[in-house]
Simulated assay, not measured.
Amino acid sequence: MAVIFIRDLLLRTEVGFNPHELGKKQDVLLNIAIHYGLRGEEISDSPDDALNYKTLCKGIVRLVEDGHFNLLERLVNNVADYLLLNERILKVEVTADKPHALRFARSVAFSLEKKREIV
């Protein structure tokens, strides 16, 4: 199994349910680990064999920036579920930071690990 890391993906979305947050986009910082099965790309050096992380990232950007979330938990769960739609991806770890959510803290973060359900 291999891992691709997407680090410090800074996006803007509506996240929160307090009156001062409604209708306003806020920064969200995502860190993602994608565990997947290799198909020989480490030997072939062929882009056709590789997991296309650029396409995955574009989908995450659309999902998050076009969405509205009351909770970080829902945002993270939706990103994890989106990634697990790809049959090569076996497990994901997604962490979302909401900078300045608390007055004296750099950020508040939520993290979730999900695995592909084996049927």
Rank of each mutant, 00 (worst) to 15 (best):
M1Q: 10
A2G: 07
V3M: 07
V3C: 10
I4C: 13
I6S: 10
I6E: 09
D8F: 01
D8Q: 07
L10N: 14
L11A: 04
T13H: 06
E14H: 11
G16M: 13
N18K: 12
N18A: 11
E21K: 11
L22M: 09
G23V: 11
G23I: 07
G23D: 09
Q26R: 10
Q26E: 14
V28T: 08
V28G: 04
L29C: 14
L30S: 12
N31A: 10
N31D: 13
I32Y: 04
I32W: 09
E41T: 03
E42Q: 05
E42T: 06
S44I: 09
S44G: 12
D45A: 06
S46E: 14
P47N: 08
D48C: 08
A50I: 13
L51R: 00
L51V: 01
N52G: 00
N52R: 00
K54S: 11
C57H: 02
C57P: 00
C57R: 07
K58Q: 12
I60E: 08
V61W: 01
R62W: 00
V64K: 00
V64M: 00
E65Q: 03
E65W: 00
D66Y: 06
G67E: 02
G67R: 02
G67Y: 03
H68C: 14
F69L: 10
N70L: 10
E73D: 05
E73K: 05
E73L: 05
L75A: 05
V76A: 12
N77F: 06
N78S: 13
A80H: 06
D81R: 15
D81T: 15
L85K: 08
L85A: 11
N86K: 06
I89R: 00
I89Q: 00
L90Q: 07
K91F: 09
K91D: 07
E93W: 06
E93P: 01
V94Y: 01
D97P: 03
K98V: 13
P99W: 04
P99M: 05
L102T: 13
L102Q: 15
R106V: 10
R106D: 13
S107R: 05
S107G: 05
V108R: 11
A109L: 04
F110E: 02
S111C: 14
L112F: 07
E113S: 13
K114G: 04
K114Q: 09
K114A: 07
K115S: 14
K115M: 14
R116V: 11
R116Y: 13
E117I: 15
